[in-house]
Design a binder for these strands. Structure first.
Lengths: 344, 344
DNA sequence: TCTTGTTGCTATAACGATATAGTATTTATT
DNA sequence: AATAAATACTATATCGTTATAGCAACAAGA
C-alpha cells in the first residue's frame, strides 16, 4: 500500500522524471514528447495508481489548490448552507476548501489568516468582522486573491458579494406596514459593519416615509454580550416599549434571542406581538406559527463569491463587476400573517 | 512582506541551516550546539519573525500536524457542537483539524479518505457510515491512527467512542412508562449500524419488560428516502397506529421529520401525542413546549475521541481502554411532561 | 607521541514534485 | 556538404525543511 511517486513511474516507464512530469501535466506536445511515449507514460501512471503528492507540488509551485473560508462561526446556519455549495463549486475548478471560524473572537481572525497563508492557501473567502480590516488590507497588499462575503469595508477596494441589506429591510418593513403595524421595534447589534448600518437605515427610512417615529423603537445589543444578557435586554425592551406591535430583528441570532424572550414572556405569536427576522433559520421555519423572515439567497451568494475568486485566480471570467449585491426575498410566515393587531 | 526561510536566518546568524534547524527543534544540546550560539540563533529567528513552512516540514517529515475529521454532514447539529471542541483540544497538542463530510453520499467516504491521506493527514476521526467499513479496514492495515466516533463496526478492532445507546433509550423509555404511556411507537432508520440496533433493542426490551407488545409500533424509514417521503411515512404511521400515545424518534433527524408531521397533522404536543428524541437539537429546545430528548454529551465524546487519537500518535496516555461508551442524559421537556394521557 | 574520544559544528542527501537549460539526433536550408 | 533548425528527450537546480554522516579542533589515555 505504499504510495507510488513520480520517480517510480519514471523508472517503470524507463524515462526521466521530467518527461513524466511534462506528460502528466499536459505539457506533452509543448515539450515535444512523442505521442507514443506520452500515452505509454499515461498508461503506466494509471496502472500504478499514481497520484501526485499535493504537498510536494505545493512546495514546488507555491500553490496549494486550497481555498480558505473564514466565517464567523461554523456552528451557524449561514455556514451550513454555504459550505456545501462552496465546496462543490470549488471542486469544479479543482480546489479544496478548508474552513475556519473566528468564533466571535476578535483577535482570532489575524491568527487564522496567518495560519492559512502559511499553509499556502491560494485564495480567501472571508466574512469579515470589524477587527479584520487591517489583516485584509495586508492580504490585498500582498496580492492575495480575496473575496469578502456578507459584508465589506467601505474603505478598502476588495471584491465582495452580499445581499442587498437595505432592500431586504425595506421589503420587510413594507410588508409590516401594509399589514397595519405601526409601532415596530428594531433590534440590532452594535457591530460597526456596513450591513448593520444599512439595515438600520432602511428601518428608519421606512418608518419615516410612513410618517412614523422611531425614537424609542431601536434596541442595539452589545456584540460581546453573552446570550443570557441579550435575552434579558430584549425582554425588557419588549416589556418597556409601550404599545409595541411588532419587532424586526436585524440578524437571525437576534431573532433566536427574541424567540426565547417571547417564549419566556409567555407572549403569543402573532397575536400579542408580530415578528420578522433578517435571515432565515431552521427554527424559524419549524417554530409555530412560523417566523416571517428575509431570506438571503445563500446559494447565489456562495456561487458568486467563488466566481469572483476564480476570476482573480485566472480561471473563468464572468464579466467585470466585482462588487455585487443580491436581492433578498421575503418569506412570509405566521408571525406576521394572521395577527392584524386590531385591538388597542 | 516576504517570508523568511530557515536558510535566511542561517545566513543572518552566520551559521549553517542544519544548526538552525537543530536549535529551533529543541535538539540543541542533543546535537551539542553551544548555549551561546543556540540563544543567538533563537534571537535572530524571533527578530526576523521566522515561522517554519509547514508544507516543507510536511514533505520532509511525512507528518502534517493535521487531523482529518469526517462527519456525515457539517450542516448538522452534532458537527456544530463537536467541531469547536475537537479543534480546541487538537490545538493543545499542536494539531490543526480539517473537516469533510460524506453528505449522505455513500461513495464519497472513500474519496474523502483518499484525499485526506494524500494530504498526509496524521490521524482520522470518523463517524462511520455503512459504506466505509472497507476503507477503514484499509486505514487500519496501513497503520494509520483512526478513532471512530458515534458508531463502530463490530467486526473491526478500532478504538471508538460513542454514547451508550442502549442505556439512552432505556432511560427514555423508563421515563415514558413511568409517565403512564403504554402505546409507544418507535421510529428508526434502516441503517445497518450498531447504534441503531442498540436503540431498537433497548426499545423492545423496555416494552417487553413492561409487559407491552411492540408488534405494530416500529417504523423503519429508508435512509435513502428524501425528506418529504420521510415525513409522509411518519405521518401515516401516526395516523394509522391505533391509540398511539407517544413516539420515540431514534435520531434527531427523524425527530425533525416527526415535528413536521405532527405540525402538519395539527396535533398538539403533548396533549395529542407525546414525543421523545434520541439526540438534541436547537429546534427541540425552542419548539414549544420543548421536546424531551436523550442528550449525547458531545463535549465528552469529542474530548475522548481526541485522547484516543493522541494516544495512537504517541502523545498523552489515558490508560488502556480504547472502546469507550459514555452515558447519555435524559432532558425532560414539555412533550412528555404534562401530557399524561388520561382519556383514551 | 600516537591513538582514541569528545566537542561543536557543517556538508550533503533526501522528501516529491516542477521548470529551465542542455544534449544528442534527425531534418531542413543553402 | 556544411550549417542551421527542429525534434525528442534528459540533467539539474530548486522549493524549505530534516537528519545522517562527516570533519576539524582540542582533550585525554596509553
Amino acid at each position: 500500500m505504499k504510495r507510488v511517486s513520480l520517480k517510480d513511474i519514471a523508472r517503470i516507464a524507463g524515462v526521466s522524471p521530467s518527461t513524466v512530469s511534462f506528460v502528466l501535466n499536459g505539457k506533452a506536445k509543448q515539450m515535444r514528447i512523442s505521442e507514443a511515449l506520452a500515452s505509454k507514460i499515461m498508461e503506466v501512471a494509471k496502472k500504478e495508481g499514481y497520484h501526485p503528492n499535493p504537498v510536494a507540488v505545493s512546495l514546488r509551485t507555491g500553490k496549494s489548490q486550497i481555498l480558505g473560508l473564514i466565517v464567523e462561526t461554523i456552528s451557524g446556519n449561514f455556514f451550513a448552507s454555504l459550505s456545501r455549495i462552496i465546496e462543490d463549486e470549488a471542486a469544479r475548478f479543482g480546489y479544496k476548501v478548508v474552513y475556519t471560524s473566528t468564533e466571535n473572537n476578535r483577535q482570532k481572525g489575524k491568527e487564522l489568516i496567518g495560519m492559512l497563508s502559511q499553509r499556502q492557501v491560494d485564495g480567501y473567502i472571508i466574512t469579515p468582522t470589524p477587527g479584520m480590516e487591517q489583516d485584509i488590507k495586508e492580504l490585498i497588499a500582498d496580492n492575495k486573491p480575496v473575496v469578502l462575503m456578507d459584508s465589506y469595508f467601505p474603505g478598502i477596494d476588495v471584491p465582495h458579494v452580499l445581499v442587498n441589506n437595505y432592500e431586504g429591510v425595506l421589503k420587510g418593513m413594507a410588508h409590516l406596514i401594509e399589514k397595519g403595524y405601526r409601532r415596530v421595534g428594531f433590534v440590532t447589534v452594535d457591530l460597526n459593519l456596513v450591513q448593520m448600518e444599512e439595515r438600520l437605515k432602511a428601518f428608519q427610512d421606512s418608518m419615516h416615509k410612513a410618517g412614523l417615529p422611531t425614537d424609542d423603537l431601536v434596541l442595539s445589543i452589545k456584540y460581546e454580550e453573552d446570550k443570557e444578557q441579550g435575552i434579558h435586554q430584549v425582554t425588557s425592551f419588549i416589556q418597556n416599549t409601550p404599545d409595541l406591535e411588532a419587532v424586526f430583528f436585524a440578524t437571525n441570532y437576534l431573532g433566536l434571542l427574541g424567540l426565547e424572550s417571547i417564549h419566556r414572556l409567555g407572549l403569543k405569536l402573532p397575536d400579542d406581538l408580530a415578528m420578522i427576522v433578517f435571515d432565515d433559520h431552521d427554527v424559524f421555519r419549524l417554530y409555530p406559527p412560523g417566523i416571517t423572515c428575509i431570506r438571503q439567497p445563500a446559494e447565489e451568494i456562495a456561487k458568486t463569491a467563488l466566481e469572483l475568486l476564480m476570476e482573480q485566480l485566472g480561471k473563468g471570467n464572468n464579466g467585470g463587476e466585482s462588487k455585487i449585491e443580491i436581492s433578498p426575498g421575503l418569506v412570509v410566515r405566521g408571525t406576521t400573517e394572521y395577527g392584524q393587531k386590531v385591538n388597542k
